[in-house]
Design a protein around this nucleic acid. Structure first.
Lengths: 226, 226
DNA sequence: ATAATTAATTCAATCGATTGATTGACACAG
DNA sequence: CTGTGTCAATCAATCGATTGAATTAATTAT
């Protein structure tokens, strides 16, 4: 049971192929129907393999679930974090204006990822199913992705507003930003019905982006004057 | 299978008692574990009755699920609507300042309900499980509760800011407010871990409230100057 | 190289456990 | 008695897991 990722690029061993096929199928099914409601037979069929492959590669349904969480973390990390400076020390030297722009960019990228990327529906649904429970998968997702992201964004916020980096207000503010964006993906049914939209396409996403980022800027400006 | 709510107050027939006990138990279990992961035996035991009572009163597990959604809608309606003016016509005569205060009060009450009320964990978790799917239950919850609330709040927002009541921006803004609050309940695991809190008690709720409402005010003020 | 051997992977078939649903007996109020 | 509601017991169906055979890939021997 090798743990390493893909070797070079195109050439995947047959074993790795079914491994990935299982993770992709499971991620999608767990996301759309939930963990308990998804049967291993269903996953295997969607991945075009046999049920026992799940036990072989992941030890069982639960192991596959954990592997999905790991896979998500690795993808989400590159998707959101790859354009940010390496160390938190680098943030210390940012000006107020640059910190604000960095934060705006962060929220903007989150909007693009959650509302725009084609993997988003599967991924976000998967995470959402986890986020309510204190499962191992959630622990992993938090420690690997959500926690560091919030930490980093809170640092930007404190730099941008001038409030103490340790202030709880900074993290609360940042989480409110994240929460907003999450809602537009999670409660998509509500959003579409309320606005009479057919889908959240590029135009709709742009409108949401403009509106939300405007609120973020207003919030930062207000927090500065204190 | 009577559909009416409780008759007077204290005196419930034995039949109605088990009916309500089943709904309450199911609401809590569906919310915490999800529909598929909750067995009818589990529900019956939690409600201190026999499995077959579920089939007798609700026709089956699915029927009980529908009854839970109906129960939630009826409760949520009274919870939110009884403190608001009757007609939307009444909003038309509000001043900007009064509209802003009404909106602030609306968000504040939502924070208290979602983060404070003791039924909230069950209810909110239940709704959240539904919100991802376009189930009949969700349709009902939206039409009976969420839709009207957003409609009303968007009206307040447009009055408070002076933008057109039909503008999509108003609804997007309002939904972002709702989304923020939802997040603090839904992603409680993340919130607690990020802030190093043990729980979201009265003090924590107050801090969240102060921070979020401050952002709402800042957003309204910024939207006005355009 | 080619054949022989071993390891890795997938398969159909089956396991016991649990699921939602149903049954007929039973209790009790009107 | 009669009808409403609850009970233990049981139903077929489906669950996740496991098995040993079959297949494929990798390694070694000739």
């Amino acid at each position: 049971m090798p743990i390493d990722t893909q070797t070079q690029s195109t050439e995947l061993s047959s074993s790795q192929k079914t491994r990935l096929a299982l993770i992709n199928a499971a991620l999608r099914l767990f996301g759309s129907k939930g963990y308990a409601a998804t049967s291993t037979r269903e996953i295997a069929e969607a991945a075009s393999t046999n049920i026992s492959s799940i036990a072989y590669h992941f030890g069982g349904k639960q192991g596959l679930h954990t592997a999905c969480a790991e896979y998500f973390v690795s993808l989400a990390k590159t998707h959101v974090n790859d354009t940010s400076p390496a160390t938190s020390a680098a943030w210390q030297s940012l000006s107020q204006e640059n910190a604000e722009e960095a934060l705006i960019s962060f929220v903007g990228r989150m909007i693009d990822f959650l509302l725009g990327s084609k993997e988003a529906p599967s991924f976000v649904s998967f995470v959402l199913r986890e986020v309510g429970s204190e499962s191992d998968a959630m622990q992993q997702i938090f420690e690997g992705f959500i926690g560091p992201s919030i930490e980093q964004a809170a640092l930007m916020y404190s730099k941008a507003t001038g409030i103490s980096p340790t202030a709880e207000e900074a993290k609360i503010a940042v989480m409110s930003y994240v929460g907003q964006v999450f809602y537009f993906r999670v409660a998509q049914f509500v959003v579409l019905n309320s606005l009479g939209w057919e889908e959240i396409g590029p135009e709709q996403r742009k409108l949401i982006k403009t509106t939300l980022l405007q609120k973020v800027r207003a919030g930062i400006a207000a927090a500065r004057e204190e």
